[in-house]
Design a protein around this nucleic acid. Sequence first.
DNA 1: CCACGATGCTTTGACAAGCTAGGCATCATC
DNA 2: GATGATGCCTAGCTTGTCAAAGCATCGTGG
Lengths: 110, 110
Amino acid sequence: MTRQKADLLQGTLDMLILKAVSLGPLHGYGIIQRIRQMSDEMLQVEQGSLYPALYRSEQKGWVSSKWEVNETGRSAKFYTLTRAGRRQLEAEEASWDRLVLAVTKVRQAT
Amino acid sequence: MTRQKADLLQGTLDMLILKAVSLGPLHGYGIIQRIRQMSDEMLQVEQGSLYPALYRSEQKGWVSSKWEVNETGRSAKFYTLTRAGRRQLEAEEASWDRLVLAVTKVRQAT
DNA sequence: CCACGATGCTTTGACAAGCTAGGCATCATC
DNA sequence: GATGATGCCTAGCTTGTCAAAGCATCGTGG
């Protein structure tokens, strides 16, 4: 079955998460919404993708988490970008740019 | 172990292969070289990635293959883009463009 | 002549990462 | 009190790429 949906490409999710968190501490559910909004509804991250990715990011020291209370009074686990996370974000953005450039070159070739 | 290399993003290889073959029939080994050249040495497809991908592409009817002799007199399996393959290439390029646009939006968000 | 690198195809196994699909809890609203 | 939104988590599947190996042919340099 050929896939129709605009799935994420493997490897882009971490960058999106780090970018979302770079705008300020946020909890998982909010990260999904923020990415959706930032992308004009073009990107829909699934919970089953996000939470494992957040866990990995925390293991790698790119984000830190703390249980806090959001503006509506509910408990949620807020993630904050660390210094290493910011470096990682920059590295992933540079890597992304290189790939986009390379693919562009291939597509322009005659 | 964190990976350092600029690996391909999963999902881009098919597009690159179809694009390479769209410039004229070519055998596997040549596809690798053509992609490398077209990308200014930025993309290096591994044989262990290419041949399975070619097999899948043929199964899906995007390319057809025929054993022929190349310009140096050696036998090689030449792949040709089919009509369905050309449609697939266009679809993958459109999908790629959407993703790049979406990621750009996310990155521009403040 | 023969070792080696380049050309050329194939397969195996590992692994990463995203997805589906579920489960659970709280809260507001109808 | 049912339902949907918010919020977190996990298990298992699938896909695709990679590393590593094997095999064969050919040309070239020593």
